[in-house]
Structure formats: C-alpha cells, structure tokens
Amino acid sequence: MSTPLTPPSSRTPLWAEITKAAKERRFTLQVCASCATVQYPPREVCRSCLSDRLDWSQVDPDGTVLTCTELHVSSDPFFQNHMPWVMGTVHLDCGPVIFAHLAPGAHKISGHVTMINRLDPSGQGVFIALPKSAHTPPQDFDFADLLTGQNEEGKNS
C-alpha cells in the first residue's frame, strides 16, 4: 500500500491559526477588536465594520444544528472510503454558521451541539459538532472517534 489516504489538506494561510489551535484542542475564531463581531469563515477584514483588527479568540462553542447531510458521493478518495459521511451546518450561538463533521448523536436538526476543533488525518484543524448530551467528554473526542462512530452506525443500519 502507498501512503494512507487523508482528507483534503489544502487551506489558505488564514487557516494556520485554526490548525495551531487544533493541536491544543482549543476552539478559536476571529473576533473583531473594534466591534466584537465573530467572523467565519476566516477573513482579512471584519464583515461588519471592515476593521482589520481580527483577534483569534476562544468563543462560545455552543450552537444548533441547521442542516445534517448524509453524503454518498465525494470527489475525495479518503471520504469515498468512509461513505456515507455525515456533515452539516451549525448555527453558533455567537453568530456564525459553520460547516462541520457531525459526530454520532449530533445528527438531529435543531439539536444542541458543542463545536470542537481537532486535527484531521491530513494534519489540518477541522470542526466537529458533538451532541451536548455526549457520554464522551468533548475534550476526549478525536477525529478517529468520528470514524469509529460512523462505522458502528453503518453496522447498525
């Protein structure tokens, strides 16, 4: 076998702070130093007041599932090997809408979730939404648990 497959690793330079935070298991987003608007996706100037003083800060990671999508087709070989894959959008209480991997138990529209930031097998930070009522404490959850969880769900169906 050749090199193990990983999810897509390409990111813009703005993503570096999120990957750095993922190594420390911190959930950080840009917050405007002038008007306190929380930003996402990462950007160069504030979407509200156009200030360029965007500080990376730990923000409230709680939110609500807006969409939950079971993917059956992907252009990426890693995900092709783990179909169906469940992703969706989460509306954070602090404002932004974020695409995330949805952990088992977080597949319910309008369900309350907590967002965590973890390294995926490509070495980049990614967001994972966990159910608020999870048995595993959020700090112990890793990307690998997503794979296990999805496999178990597959067996059950």
Partner: peptide, 23 residues
C-alpha cells in the same frame, strides 16, 4: 470553500444544496 467547506466531505455544491433542500 477551500478552508471551510471542501474539507468536510469534498462534496462540492451537492453538500451545500443538500442542506438548503432539506431545510
């Protein structure tokens, strides 16, 4: 998209519009 959509399953517009359709 490169930062905040594609890494979540690499589904392109199908992934985005699936959510819009579901809603």
């Amino acid at each position: 998209s490169t930062d905040a959509v594609f890494p979540y399953g690499a589904a392109g517009p199908n992934g985005v519009f699936a959510g819009i359709t579901q809603n």
